[in-house]
Design a binder for these strands. Structure first.
Lengths: 353, 353
DNA sequence: CCACTATACACAATCGATTGCCGTGGCCGC
DNA sequence: GCGGCCACGGCAATCGATTGTGTATAGTGG
């Protein structure tokens, strides 16, 4: 059906091999021949067959990317950054949205591997790295993104979540919050790191965190902002509701703000809210949302560069250990924490990032 | 390096062919043998090599999806729906975000085709179908999504944009708007269809649309909401600013609302705003945004089903003409057009959808 | 003018599967 | 007891490229 090398070769009265080499600028082939080949390729509309090439080269030019939810702006932006860098080198990214379902994720990864990926990037919904270990042993470069596992050596690209928790918490304290609550995200490394950053910072400032101030957001199939709404209702039903909330991410924080406005709570005066991720939509919502930037696009780009470093490394240079790329985000203050104090330059980024 | 069929075969003392057939449940192979094979496959961690399989079967199990912007929730959601349905049948989707750049889009499509896609889904940024024609002729099923071209026969899945424009406009008229403006999106079929739906409806109701009420949103590299902000500034600088705006999409509308609030304009009393797409974030923004639903996820799923119909069709049944799947969305009223009238049940969907 | 070396191209094996066709053994009926 | 059918499995060709090793032609020096 489709035009293949043999067709070009026959048409030109030369060997298939010559065509192959001509197309890849092999020095064996003279300029004149190369030009003749190129011309015919244009005319006949020849397209290389990557499946055939993969078979012999062992490289598929495909990178897998497993995300918990492609609709989440963070992961969509990571995907964009990842693709943008990789495509310049001829790679494509195949994406799978696991919907935070560990089982589905496993199946998808298994299936992806059949395409002989040149690398696999995973923002995993697993609770352990058990399912990932076989991948790594198979020789396919594995890159954990955003979420990592203890006791599992692997490349990692993500943000400094502990520090993000610290930055957010210190900001809330600085603007005068005393009773600060935290709404947790999914049970993954960013979740526990941000929580730890929060708790350590509170302790350091001598502030108490009663257990009921730590809300485990339900992890069903409702949208993230719904979690925020529910969480705020729970918090407001307490004898002493918090005067500040650090939310795991901006989607949850958006829900909190929505519900706060609905309840007639003054944000930020009565209740200050900060999230994490610095989504573009933060400035559009009911009360523009302060956040810690997460540099999503850059995370994707860094992951791509890491992959390129690995696959382009000379043959013997492989066992160089694993690499960790940890990006620092900066504080972005908007109305949701703007009480008119010193550190409140609305919409202005503070710190590196 | 990796385990292959030959390894399993040698290990079991049977032929490679037997292994191949056993794995695909070929009737030639006895249950006992099949089980022995399955067991070894597990033990040795065998994974089929799809590149090799593609070479002989001619099917890559890969579907390409070209979007203008993966960060736009509409396309991200379409991608999710598309992937979800296709993955059940063993297909993967490779996504390319063209950033509304026709040239980049062409390059990406060309490159994608090298993977011998089983189908290509395109939400094109091209102004004509010129670049797409060769694809179609190559025999790869081509599906236009969301955006189509005149004088170009191809499968299409998308929403009824003319009707969306009509629904939105009629709603604005119904709540009492007299001077209605429209902010255009990119210069593609949905843009012109929604505009036409708007203009026809205005005419039908005897309402005038001065040319300065049709704003061509710039299509640079700024975010969509920025267009909305700029557009509203332009409109407000007119002698007679509009009392209602129908925006091409919700992202632009979000910008309009942001700017309106900043200018102290009362939405919806002084200015009613409606968008298109019914993004999840619509209820979170400054003034919750009315919209015409676009059923993004369903569009993706329908595209997937169409692909499956095509690729699973019996050999001879191919030339069945092109198919058009046009989904109807419904009106969703929120605060941005809620003037307390009859048709204003906040957040409630009206009509089919 | 011959041997020698680049230059330019071709042969054949290979990558890891699939597929149509053929071969073997056992069991049946007549 | 023999032909024949069925169930099970193997042979060999094939898919469309890449790659190391040959081999003819052309150009060069002594």
């Amino acid at each position: 059906m489709a035009v293949k090398m043999k067709d070009i070769a026959d048409d030109l009265g030369i060997s298939l091999v010559t065509v192959s080499k001509a197309l890849r600028n092999h020095p064996d082939i003279s300029l004149k021949t190369r030009e003749r080949v190129a011309a015919r390729v244009q005319e006949l509309g020849y397209r290389p067959n990557l499946a055939a090439r993969s078979l012999v080269t062992g490289r598929s030019m495909l990178v897998g990317f497993v995300v918990p939810d492609l609709m989440h702006p963070f992961f969509a932006d990571v995907a964009k950054g990842l693709s943008a860098v990789l495509r310049e080198k001829g790679y494509f990214v195949i994406i799978s949205s696991s919907e935070e379902d560990p089982e589905l994720e496993c199946k998808e990864i298994e299936h992806m591997m059949a395409h002989r990926l040149d690398a696999l990037v995973v923002a995993s919904s697993q609770s352990s790295a058990e399912a990932l270990a076989p991948i790594q042993q198979s020789g396919t470069p594995l890159i954990l993104l955003d979420r990592y596992f203890d006791n599992f050596e692997a490349h990692f690209v993500g943000s400094d979540d502990y520090n993000a928790g610290k930055i957010a918490t210190e900001h809330l304290i600085e603007i005068g919050c005393k009773r600060i609550a935290h709404i947790q995200g999914p049970d993954t490394s960013p979740g526990s790191r941000r929580l730890k950053g929060f708790l350590d910072t509170m302790r350091k400032h001598g502030l108490e965190v009663p257990p009921e101030y730590i809300i485990k957001a339900g992890s069903g199939d409702v949208e993230g902002d719904e979690h925020g709404i529910q969480a705020l209702r729970t918090l407001q039903s307490l004898k002493r509701p918090p005067d500040g909330i650090f939310c795991f991410n901006d989607v949850i924080a958006s829900g909190v703000i929505l519900e706060a406005v609905a309840q007639g709570i003054d944000v930020p005066k009565t209740l200050a809210v900060i999230g994490c991720g610095n989504l573009h939509s933060n400035r559009l919502i009911r009360v523009p949302l302060s956040s810690v930037d997460q540099r999503s696009n850059e995370i994707g780009r860094r992951a791509a560069k890491l992959i390129l470093d690995i696959v382009q490394a000379p043959e013997g240079t492989k066992p160089a250990g694993t690499k960790r790329v940890v990006l620092q985000g900066g504080l972005v203050v908007r109305a949701s924490t703007d009480r008119g104090g010193i550190s409140s330059r609305p919409g202005k980024k503070i710190g590196k990032g």
